[in-house]
Nucleic acid binder design. Sequence first.
DNA 1: TGGGGTTAT
DNA 2: ATAACCC
Length: 483
Amino acid sequence: AEFEEEGSRDKEMDPVWSMEPPDAEAVDGSQGAMKPEEPDGFPGSVLDEAGHGSPSSRVIVHVDLDCFYAQVEMISNPELKGKPLGVQQKYLVVTCNYEARKLGVQKLMNVRDAKEKCPQLVLVNGEDLTRYREMSYKVTELLEEFSPVVERLGFDENFVDITEMVEKRLQQLQSDERCAVTVSGHVYKDQSINLYDILHVRLLIGSQIAAEMREAMCNQLGLTGCAGVASNKLLAKLVSGTFKPNQQTVLLPESCQDLIDSLNHVKEMPGIGYKTTKRLEALGISSVHDLQTFSSKILEKELGISVAQRIQKLSFGEDDSPVTPSGPPQSFSEEDSFKKCSSEVEAKKKIAELLASLLNRIYQDGRKPHTVRLIIRRYSSEKHYSRESRQCPIPPHVIQKLRTGNYDVIPPMVDILMKLFRNMVNVKMPFHLTLLSVCFCNLKSLQTAKKGTIDYYLTSTLSTTSHSGKHSFTTKDTHAEDF
DNA sequence: TGGGGTTAT
DNA sequence: ATAACCC
């Protein structure tokens, strides 16, 4: 049915289209302007083989806020605007504004080095993430107004699948408007646009939507950021960083390989982290080209079929992972790091502090956690970054008290957490911790399950049924009573 | 390295 | 419960 519609439109083609043949040099510098299977020269919607309207080619936008924490701080205190500003957590400058960057300050730089590079650097403490978190969700909510399919990545990045929005706008266009579609922002590598290529047109409309998103962020929230528009998440993310503060870039398919080639090392590929990079290097793979051409069989044997196939596809710029709507958070946690904690009393005090902040957040959220977890990091000279954790279900009578708004929950919760603590740390022996973290997860909405429904029975009998409806029968928590 | 998050095993 | 990934 979709193709019949497109076909009938072909016959009413605007004269403008007839005047500019598809192979006109002026229109397109790239090859393959027309596909042979579209002899009428008017490309239609890009549909999958079922033809039911679900697109085989997506339009994804990646939105990346500029030095997010620093922006939030400058909104909180406008006097900071125009000055070199760094946001400090412990002895690190975790991010800084562009004034500071011009003067040599970099992300995750030691405070000493930063002050040395830039003595005028103004520092604000950013260990309390509350305002950042709140602003972060305002951004996500604003983007959700464009399309509900928004996936968060950290506090300052979002992916939005705008395929449907683009299709709608495309269908709204009169045929004489289609040849007048323009790009908003940069085109990666300045590739020439071919308006006879439906993929180009869709991405250009995507760039216009991205511009509207950035405009809305600026007008409604006072925030600036970058955006990248491409046919998948990987490419959208990579291309969003090409022009850096407060600009946007669209990637046309013909420049995909160039974008990939612009990466200097496999470690720059999102999805290939520290561990995988080390294992790839051990195999002699360092560039993206190395990964592209490496034997799939051997890679699968070395890394496992799942990782191997995924990252090798990434090396070609292929990423079929969907934009998964994040929705409300799946967990709430607070952590504190320090040089040394070596007594139970000290630990208890810190845990109680973390708990107090978390209870406020839980209260605000409105849902109830059914699981609590305690995480520690032990001091160790060598062993890089290892955390241990213990978790248990929150007893029903404690869950009930969570919403009352008073502090009756604190003593029983501290009690549970200290049991978890002693299960991990032998307090009769000397110990040295450098981090404590408390996490509430397995969040359930308080929405009353209706009598007689499946949910009614599940809700009261299963503590491991997660919010999303996935079940975790295989994961058995230790109960607080077990200690 | 901070203070968070997610999914897969 | 841990390990990997992301910011």
